[in-house]
């Protein structure tokens, strides 16, 4: 069964790589199967990791062990069921209720969390090295890095600041921002390419060792 699984995986891998030649029935077969399997996997995960532990288990406990607090879970279940109103055009507006709650919760959570994780901590990381410079803890190369970091952050922010025209001093700073952005995008591109190439190596390794290698080893002669 294990070798059969390897053969299935190898066949599907080759089906997808056949796209390198051109669009063909094998690729379309794998593409559509992948879509279906992924959606099915997502459905199963959302039920087993979402509905069952957070809704069904507390509700069942409330019924069997007479814990009224668990009955509270009926409220979000009822709210969730409102999504089905989308399937009835006349009552489709009801879907706004669960959407409004989810968006409200998301927005309420985002404000303090984003402020903490993405603003205060990023500013902290940018400015703390200057305290270390003041305390004499950094060497010349690290001081250069800290100053470069500060200039880069300010210049990048200036580039995205469209409330003033990018001329004169602002224009100059925003041009420096472009330099930092290009290096940043280049690095991101390089990392992405290397990540994809790693996946390619892993797939080729699978085809050569797991598929061909195991198949040869399993031959009786």
């Amino acid at each position: 069964m294990e070798l059969f699984g390897v053969w299935v995986a190898a066949f599907l891998t080759l089906c997808i790589y056949s796209f390198l030649y051109r669009d063909n029935p094998f690729y379309r077969f794998a593409e559509h199967l992948f879509l279906g399997v992924s959606v099915g996997y997502g459905i199963v995960l959302s039920i087993h990791d979402g509905l069952i532990p957070f809704a069904w288990n507390p509700f069942w406990k409330a019924v069997t062990e007479r814990e009224p607090a668990g009955l509270l879970k009926l409220i979000p279940i009822a709210i969730g069921l409102m999504f089905f109103a989308r399937l009835v055009p006349k009552h489709a507006w009801i879907i706004r209720y669960p959407f409004a709650i989810l968006i409200g919760v998301g927005s309420g959570l985002a404000i303090p969390n984003v402020m903490d994780a993405s603003i205060f901590r990023q500013l902290h990381g940018t400015l703390v090295p200057f305290a270390q410079i003041y305390a004499g803890k950094l060497g010349p190369f690290e001081i250069f890095g800290a100053i470069l970091m500060f200039i880069g952050v300010i210049a990048t922010l200036t580039y995205f600041f469209f409330s003033v025209e990018h001329r004169g001093v602002v224009g100059g700073i925003s041009k420096v921002g472009i330099v930092f952005l290009m290096v940043g995008f280049g690095s991101a591109f390089g990392n992405t390419v290397m990540g994809r190439v790693s996946l390619l190596i892993q797939r080729v390794d699978f085809l050569v060792n797991d598929w061909i290698g195991n198949t040869i080893q399993s031959l009786p002669f």
């Binding site: 959302s46 979000p76 669960p98 919760v105």
Partner: peptide, 10 residues
């Protein structure tokens, strides 16, 4: 927890 229950319905 409510959000985690409502999301799968989406």
């Amino acid at each position: 927890d409510w959000s985690l229950i409502i999301w799968p319905f989406a």
